[in-house]
C-alpha cells in the first residue's frame, strides 16, 4: 500500500522531469529544424538588400553587428559598476553590514524588474535628455538590465571564496586596494561567468532595445545613430506575411540561439572550474 503510493509518486516525478528535458529538446529542435534550411552564408555576411523585406537578397549582418555593439557597450558599463561594487560590499564593508544588505536587496529587486519597464524608463530618460533612438540609448538601457544580473552573480561567487588569502594579505600590510588586485586572479572565473551570463541575457532581450536602439538596415556608424538588433530583427521578420522573410526569421532565431548556447556553455565551463555544482 505504502509501496504503491511511493511508486506512483515516483512515476509522476520522473514524468515531470522528462517533460522538462523534452521541452528543451522540443524548443531547440524546432528552431534547428526550421532555421537550418533557411540559413545561408549570405544571412550572416550581407546587409539587407533592396526588397529584403519582400523576400529578396540580403542578410541580417546589420542586426548581428548591432547586437554585438550594443552588448559590448552594455557589458563594459556593467563591469565598471558591478566590479567595484562587489569588491566594496564584500571587502570594504564589515561583515553583515546593513549597507551591503540594502545594496544586495535593491539589486535583487532590480533583477526582477521586467525588461519592458527598463525599456520604458530608458525611453523616458532619452526624451528627457533630448536623445533619439540610438546605439547609445540601447547600450544604456541594456546596461540597466544586465548590471543586476552581473552584480548578483559575481557577488555570489565572491561570497563563496575562502577568506584566508585576503586575510593573510591584509596581515602582511597590504591596503585593501592592493589586496583586491591580488585576489582578482582567484575571482576571475566567477567574474567571467557572471559577465557571460549577463551577456547572454542582454543579447537576447528585445523589450529593452525596442524603444531605445531603434532599427536600421545599415551598420551603426556612431553612438548617436540607430542600431539594429538580432532579437528585433527576428520579431520584425516573423511578423511579415511573406514566407521567405518568415523563413529568414527562423534562420535568425537559429543564429541567436547558437550565440546563446555558446555563451551558456562557456559560462558553465568557467563556473565548474570555480565552484561546486549548484544543482
Amino acid at each position: 500500500m505504502k509501496k504503491a503510493e511511493e511508486n506512483i509518486f515516483k512515476v509522476f516525478m520522473i514524468i515531470a522531469a522528462l517533460i522538462i528535458i523534452g521541452l528543451l529538446l522540443f524548443i531547440l529542435g524546432t528552431i534547428i529544424l526550421k532555421g537550418v534550411p533557411a540559413l545561408s552564408w549570405n544571412m550572416i555576411t550581407k546587409l539587407p538588400g533592396g526588397g529584403f523585406y519582400l523576400g529578396r537578397e540580403g542578410g541580417v549582418l546589420n542586426a548581428i553587428v548591432g547586437s554585438l555593439y550594443v552588448i559590448a557597450g552594455a557589458v563594459a558599463i556593467s563591469i565598471v559598476i558591478s566590479l567595484p561594487l562587489v569588491m566594496y560590499i564584500n571587502f570594504y564593508l564589515p561583515h553583515k553590514s546593513p549597507l551591503a544588505g540594502i545594496v544586495r536587496f535593491s539589486f535583487d529587486i532590480l533583477l526582477g524588474v521586467p525588461s519592458i519597464v527598463y525599456g520604458a524608463f530608458g525611453f523616458a530618460l532619452m526624451i528627457f535628455l533630448g536623445m533619439r533612438a540610438s546605439l547609445a540609448g540601447g547600450i544604456i538601457t541594456v546596461a540597466m538590465l544586465i548590471t543586476p544580473i552581473m552584480m548578483r552573480s559575481f557577488d555570489e561567487a565572491t561570497k563563496l571564496m575562502p577568506r584566508d588569502l585576503p586575510d593573510s594579505l591584509l596581515s602582511l600590510g597590504s591596503t585593501k586596494y592592493e589586496m583586491i588586485k591580488v585576489i582578482m586572479r582567484q575571482l576571475m572565473p566567477g567574474f567571467v561567468t557572471a559577465a557571460l551570463l549577463a551577456t547572454g541575457r542582454g543579447i537576447g532581450d528585445a523589450a529593452t532595445v525596442l524603444f531605445t536602439a531603434g532599427y536600421t538596415d545599415n551598420l551603426p556608424g556612431s553612438l548617436s545613430q540607430p542600431a539594429a538588433t538580432l532579437p528585433l530583427s527576428i520579431f520584425f521578420q516573423l511578423g511579415s506575411p511573406v514566407a521567405e522573410v518568415q523563413n529568414r526569421a527562423y534562420a535568425s532565431a537559429l543564429i541567436l540561439t547558437f550565440l546563446i548556447l555558446i555563451l551558456s556553455f562557456a559560462a558553465r565551463y568557467f563556473s565548474s572550474k570555480f565552484s561546486r555544482n549548484r544543482l
Binding site: 524548443i27 528552431i31 537576447g204 532581450d205 523589450a207 546563446i260
Partner: peptide
C-alpha cells in the same frame, strides 16, 4: 538562457 524572442518563435 533561451531568450524570450526564441520562446516566442517556438
Amino acid at each position: 538562457g533561451i531568450p524570450p524572442v526564441i520562446y516566442g518563435v517556438w
